[in-house]
Design a protein around this nucleic acid. Structure first.
Length: 491
RNA sequence: UCCUCAGUAGCUCAGUUGGUUAGAGCAUCUGACUGUUAAUCAGAGGGUCACUGGUUCAAGUCCAGUCUGAGGAGCCA
């Protein structure tokens, strides 16, 4: 029975006789017969097909001998039509490529009406491509972006796996509104037009699906801490939702976040891990996606040529990534950061729009100055004033600061935010009281401090922000397949 | 949410102090050519000038509102 089934599958999987273009290009042009399948990028001169199958940005040139193929077939070889080609690989007579396929058979798998297909073999604006996000994968830029995105995701799992971390799937739907990480999306099955109400007129969520008000998660951290204080070292990597009305190049309403959480780690351990982690995943991409990075670097170069000299970056994309891999991040305390800002020429010349003094939550302009002007590399800032940080961060002995650490990256800003967590029950509940965090709703979180509490730490990394940094793209909406932003949930 | 800028052909954009039938390049279609590299050459078709209202003899152009997009800010990852 199983055998018949498998034999049946063999027929179904005949397509797997095909060779991927990425693989084909590394083989000798020895006249062998091969089968390739892909999408037509351009068809020149009624003879030359530039064929792409998504395995690489490099197209394979398929040559159709004049007069050998039916005119009706030739007419159907339009941009983005899909085809199967059987032919022989030979050294190319033309100049632009080493190898080409002399076609014996060409079969149309799917037509693409040239009058209606929106992509042309030319430059398109990223804004236009965003409007046709379902088709933009078929461009070189987005092919590279999404292969790099994949490689980063894979490298993240590999890094933590090698270190013995356990991958946790924390819930997407949560009942606690206490995390304070921003506006939340309500999850409800109650009728919007006529929800049940309590006597005082407020909505009666006891009749809702979960019997209480629920939202989409804004962070898996609190649940992550529960797992870490038993399994030791865990990480989450999942979708995260913020209902903030943010319209910027670095915010999404739905994004992916990586949140490791480690028992028996202090702030120093936390920083060391975060830095090693970022270096590791960037090195992985440098080693495994060089062709895509080269393409993206070239794209960025051309884009920057449009800018005035003073707006251009000093380093190319590859240089920038190699620099991050090969150099220690700068580590300073918040207090030192404020001192640097106060002594900066920018401050003395009153270039900052916002005032600088100890206690402020640093503005973008301040972070950019530190990272892009003063240090010109990623900077880890530690020990922030407690009043501008979350309730769960460990209170330092000075009574003023907490054991927080933010990693700031050139061009992106905050890429990692983390801290050593407050493991002392009294300190934690005391801070919750001061900050009006309802302790009763978080009884389960506090139980970790009641029973066998341990020093622990963790951080969150915005996945799309690291993809932005690595690909050199300018807008976060161009490094996620189908961006969700205010007024946009298309596709 | 705030500030600034923008919305004209499928795409990228021009359109003067308001003035007759709104243009170009690319793409598309037709034909020619054929070792091309975003092929080339010739011709053709293609427009609710974002939407609504107003000013005016006359609005793509001026005014108001709305919608959408971009950049910056805030919030943050």
């Amino acid at each position: 029975m199983l055998l018949t089934y498998l034999y049946g599958l063999q027929d179904v999987f005949m397509f797997n006789k095909r060779i991927k273009i990425r693989e084909l290009l590394n083989q000798p042009a020895d006249g062998r017969e091969v089968t390739v399948m892909g999408w037509v990028r351009t068809f020149r001169n009624n003879q030359f097909i530039a064929l792409n199958d998504g395995s690489t940005n490099t197209n394979i040139q398929v040559v159709l001998e004049l007069g050998k193929f039916d005119d009706v077939l030739l007419k159907r070889l339009t941009t983005s039509s899909s085809i199967k080609v059987v032919g022989h690989i030979i050294p190319s007579q033309g100049k632009g490529q080493q190898m080409e396929i002399k076609a014996a058979h060409v079969e149309i798998l799917g037509d693409a009406d040239a009058e209606k297909y929106p992509l042309q073999p030319k430059k398109h604006s990223l804004e236009f491509l965003r409007e046709i996000a379902h088709l933009r994968f078929r461009t070189n830029t987005f092919g590279s972006v999404f292969r790099v995105r994949h490689a980063l995701a894979f490298a993240i799992h590999r890094f933590f796996h090698e270190k013995g971390f356990v991958y946790m799937h924390t819930p997407v739907i949560t009942a606690s509104d206490a995390e304070g990480a921003g506006e939340m999306f309500r999850v409800s099955t109650l009728p919007l037009d006529n929800p049940p109400r309590k006597e005082d007129g407020t909505i009666d969520f006891s009749q809702d699906f979960f019997g209480k008000a629920t939202n989409l998660t804004v962070s898996g951290q609190l649940e992550g801490e529960l797992a870490a204080t038993a399994l030791g070292e865990i990480y989450t990597f999942g979708p995260t939702f913020r209902a903030e009305n943010s319209n910027t190049t670095r915010h999404l309403a739905e994004f992916w976040m990586v949140e490791p959480e480690m028992a028996f780690y202090d702030l120093e351990d936390n920083m060391n891990l975060a830095e090693e982690f970022i270096r590791y995943i960037i090195r992985f991409v440098l080693e495994n996606n060089r062709e895509d990075l080269d393409f993206l670097a070239q794209r960025l170069d051309e884009e920057e040529k449009q800018l005035p000299m003073d707006k251009r970056s000093d380093m190319g994309l590859i240089q920038k990534l190699e620099f991050v891999v090969n150099n220690r991040f700068e580590r300073i305390t918040y207090t030192e950061a404020i001192d640097i800002l106060l002594q900066s020429p920018a401050y003395k010349k009153k270039k900052f729009q916002y005032d600088v003094k100890w206690g402020i939550d640093m503005q973008s302009e301040h972070e950019r100055y530190l990272v892009e002007k003063h240090f010109q590399k990623p900077v880890i800032v530690t020990n922030y004033p407690k009043d501008i940080k979350a309730f769960y961060m460990r209170q330092n002995d000075d009574g003023k600061t907490v054991a927080a650490m933010d990693i700031l990256a050139p061009g992106i800003g905050e890429i990692v935010g983390g801290s050593q967590r407050e493991e002392r029950f009294d300190r934690l509940t005391g801070r919750m009281l001061e900050m009006n965090i309802p302790a009763d709703e978080l009884w389960w979180y506090l139980d970790t401090r009641r029973f066998g509490t341990v020093p622990h730490a963790g951080f969150g990394l915005g996945f799309e922000r690291i993809v932005l940094f690595v690909t050199g793209m300018g807008n976060i909406r161009d490094v996620i397949a189908f961006p969700r932003t205010p007024k946009n949930a298309e596709f």
